[in-house]
Nucleic acid binder design. Sequence first.
DNA 1: ATATAAACGCAACTGGAGTTGTCTTTGGAG
DNA 2: CTCCAAAGACAACTCCAGTTGCGTTTATAT
Lengths: 195, 195
Amino acid sequence: METVKRPGGRSARVRDAVRQATLAELAERGFGGLTVENVAERSGVHKTTVYRRWGNVEGLIADALELAREEPWPIPDTGSIEGDLRDIVRLVRTGFDDPEAGPVAAAFVAAAMQSPDAARSLHGFLAARHEQSAQVVRRAVARGELPEGVDAHEVIRVAIAPVYYRLFVSHEPVTQDDADRAAAAALTAARAGVL
Amino acid sequence: METVKRPGGRSARVRDAVRQATLAELAERGFGGLTVENVAERSGVHKTTVYRRWGNVEGLIADALELAREEPWPIPDTGSIEGDLRDIVRLVRTGFDDPEAGPVAAAFVAAAMQSPDAARSLHGFLAARHEQSAQVVRRAVARGELPEGVDAHEVIRVAIAPVYYRLFVSHEPVTQDDADRAAAAALTAARAGVL
DNA sequence: ATATAAACGCAACTGGAGTTGTCTTTGGAG
DNA sequence: CTCCAAAGACAACTCCAGTTGCGTTTATAT
């Protein structure tokens, strides 16, 4: 007999409540202020239960990231690689700028810096995002806008990296112009066959 | 009378001991494992003293960053902007790869994500580094290798950003080829007048 | 409908980070 | 040399994140 668990009852409700509470706490206090105890209280689930199922703060983060991974990501299709790339980088910028989703996204990045588990989760999450975004580059190659051998993932990386750098490393403000410039730089390099 | 404090005595020794201990702890346990208590014990300074002078872990980080800021940074001068840029990006990569200095540097980045104080310190630190690195670009302009209106700081940023992105956001391995490619992409964009 | 094992709730406990009041040391001015 | 204010050492305390043992609920298989 296959002891397949089908979580449709109490466990599922607990899981959802904790996930929601984690996201809410993350939005309010950021990663540094995330506590198992606070998540437990907010979710209405007893803290020992949270400790047993999620272990610690890192577990909560990893689980929340898995949830976020399933949300669809609007890939732009403006007709030109120039517009598509620009929109992707803008989307990254505004995503972190958003007063609601921004802190949560930033918390994920912060968490990944201190927890190998969270780092793996974020890596997987971004790999999925990159794979979707890379499609934009492949379309451009098909249209003849970019040379054949271009590394789609690398183009995306080079385009968005300066935005992340300003946000999380140098801690400078990021304008839309900054985002557009980064997209343009990546595009130029891609066209020249450097990427 | 100018009540100028000249810290050449006990206070200075305490300060140095704490700074050293902070760096050592950071190297061993990273930012997440940094504790005022551990720093106090390792330095031989009583923990109440550390708490009163540095306040908390963030204060220790900010102070250590100020110390690191004074260390000189070897600006390459290969004769061409291509070589200079490449060496700068390689230097960033190897800096975080170094088993001794790497964890400390990574800890600074992690700390800046959770503490506005540390963020300011890191911002200042990197601003100084960037200003030095930008010289390489200005030399290139003087030699006619790059167009006049190029934004020196932006060239540096675009060049090193992909390395930081891989290290601290997507958590992918970073090869020397990756570093060289990022430098080449930034250079191409700069030559084309995009940066 | 009922049995049962997993999941959850609960209260009490543990340990360590951070705080406070007070005493002691020390560097430097006169 | 003497004095004294600033800085440090010390011990005792508080508080909260995380743990443990055990009783209770509940989803699911039969």
